[in-house]
């Protein structure tokens, strides 16, 4: 059974539509990332799930129980969702222990103590229960907030840009750690971020937002290699587009010559479109008589990033070959792969 089920959810605020007919389902233990630029509505959806934002249409249910919609509104305090915030939202006047036990009810003293110890151990903060939030580092504070949410034993965990205030050096490690905790406890989670890198590391599924709509939803690999629009393709990485004509089932004609696909293209023969090429899908070969020229070179460590021009077409290419210099002539090769062509 799906943990979270969002059906046709629309929300407006002061006459402005913020969420438009969203559909999303989440399986038990799964982590979905709501990804998109700021102001696209992803945080609004998170708040709608938590019951902190009203919806005007559609429904939101957890474990089959409707929380919002169909004339039903379950108050936030009765939804049983855990929420993690960008600013951690720890209560500054309470100790770590009191923060963690803030939402815990109906346990006796011993059980509360056990719950606390479990949580501190889980987030590797054993022995720090008596500290106050301001005595902890940012990363430690975020762990406390994870512990506080988990101690409440939520049906669903909501994370609102939880890593954006964490130092870049420790962010990656922190993400893996918290992901492991959620997986270990088999907690489903909805994770809001504007960073595709964070989404790739942390989530199983991606839901990409554009102005209040989910434009594509699926596994990260699917969205990256098989985007359904230029918006999705551009958001998930650098892109090149070639104006092409489909000349056969698995073949297009481009300004760089004929390109072959490993899969059958859904387009009719003779139709025009834009071929998506990622920077690593174009290979560079040294060739003094090549028809392409390197016009810009940037060293990025594992690869080199080149700007190349051929027949007036500008391309960005990542290549493991480091030894091309600006002004050098090269030959471009596009190996056969699963082509993505957007219809005009």
């Amino acid at each position: 059974m799906s943990t979270l089920s969002i059906h046709n959810v629309t929300s407006d605020y002061q006459g402005r539509v913020i969420l438009k007919q969203l559909d999303l389902t989440l399986q038990q233990g799964e982590i979905v990332a709501l990804l998109g630029p700021s102001g696209c509505g992803k945080t609004t959806l998170l708040k709608a799930i938590a019951g902190l934002q009203a919806i005007s249409e559609g429904s939101i249910s957890i474990n089959g129980q409707v929380l919002s919609g169909n004339g039903i509104f379950v108050a936030s305090e009765q939804r049983g969702v855990g929420m993690i915030f960008q600013d951690y939202a720890l209560f500054p006047h309470l100790s770590v222990a009191d923060n963690i036990l803030f939402g815990v009810k109906g346990l006796n003293k011993l059980e509360r103590q056990t719950r606390l110890e479990d949580m501190l151990e889980l987030v590797k903060l054993t022995g720090l229960g008596d500290r106050y939030p301001h005595e902890l580092s940012g990363g430690q504070q975020q762990r406390v907030s994870i512990a506080r949410a988990l101690a409440y034993e939520p049906e669903l965990m909501l994370l609102d840009e939880p890593f954006s205030n964490i130092d870049a050096q420790v962010r990656h490690e922190m993400m893996l750690e918290i992901r492991a905790i959620l997986k270990q406890r088999n907690v489903s989670a909805v994770f809001v971020t504007h960073s595709k890198d964070e989404a790739f590391v942390f989530a199983d599924q991606l839901a990409l937002f554009e102005q209040g709509r989910i434009v594509q939803h699926g596994a990260a690999e699917t969205l990256y290699s098989n985007p359904n629009s230029q918006y999705v393709a551009d958001f998930l990485g650098t892109t090149n587009y070639l104006d092409v004509t489909v000349t056969a089932e698995k073949q297009v004609d481009s300004p760089l010559g004929t390109v072959f696909s490993t899969t059958t293209l859904p387009h009719t023969i003779g139709s025009k479109g834009k071929l998506l090429l990622r920077p690593q899908q174009i290979l560079l070969q040294a060739n003094d008589k090549g028809s392409a020229e390197i016009i810009e070179r940037r060293f990025l460590g594992s690869v080199c990033h080149y700007h190349v021009v051929q027949n007036g077409v500008f391309l960005e290419i990542n290549s493991p070959m480091m030894n091309f210099s600006i002004g050098q002539r090269v030959q471009l090769v596009i190996p056969e792969h699963q082509l993505v062509v957007f219809s005009e």
Partner: peptide, 15 residues
Amino acid sequence: ISPSLDMASITLGQS
């Protein structure tokens, strides 16, 4: 007082 403190308290089941 950060608004997220309110949200945290409410989502943790407090009236």
